[in-house]
Nucleic acid binder design. Structure first.
Lengths: 84, 84
DNA sequence: ATTAATGCGGTAAAATATTACCGCAATTTT
DNA sequence: AAAATTGCGGTAATATTTTACCGCATTAAT
């Protein structure tokens, strides 16, 4: 699959993280304390600029106390061109 | 959060991957061709032995043509002790 | 009985994520 | 107005994932 599409999903994921963070009224530095992830790294995640690992995903979900799948709760469909 | 709990989620994720692979009646080597991930690495993923990156998650979802959140479609709740 | 396919463990090298910082411009609080 | 907070870009060092293999014991197919 083209990298372009993975990065699109990464951006959607990042927006979800930001959405959850703002819903909890946390600053980047406040969230950093909840999940032990550097605030500048969280910023990169929210902008889809970091291809984060599974542990990091779970750590974020834990900070929000939500099921990890909640972070993937956005609209997305596979288009044929993603695989060409 | 304790690593133990991240690894538990990783195991659940791996089981989901295996479930989807078998549903599609694919061998590890057949799936390897669909997503360009080495069969022995997929085996490790299915057993929760690899802390995989976001790109890999999306690549797997793409091979199954499902929304990435489908791979997180398993029961899971946060317990207090996970954070102590 | 042979042959082919399968799951899976191991590994060295390469690629990449993650950490732990600094600093700054802009906004918010006091 | 001064002080504090915020989002975010950059970075060097470290840790980790990922790749691309090999081999082997077990199972399935011919």
């Amino acid at each position: 699959m083209k990298n372009k599409y993975k990065e699109e999903v990464l951006v959607l994921f990042g927006k979800k993280v930001k959405e959850l963070r703002l819903k909890k009224k946390l600053s980047l530095r406040a969230l950093e304390k909840e999940c032990d992830i550097d605030n500048s790294y969280i910023s990169k995640i929210e902008h889809g600029k970091a291809n984060i690992g599974f542990h990091t995903i779970v750590e974020l979900a834990g900070a929000f106390k939500v099921h990890p799948k909640e972070l993937f709760n956005f609209e997305h469909e596979w288009k044929d061109e993603a695989f060409m």
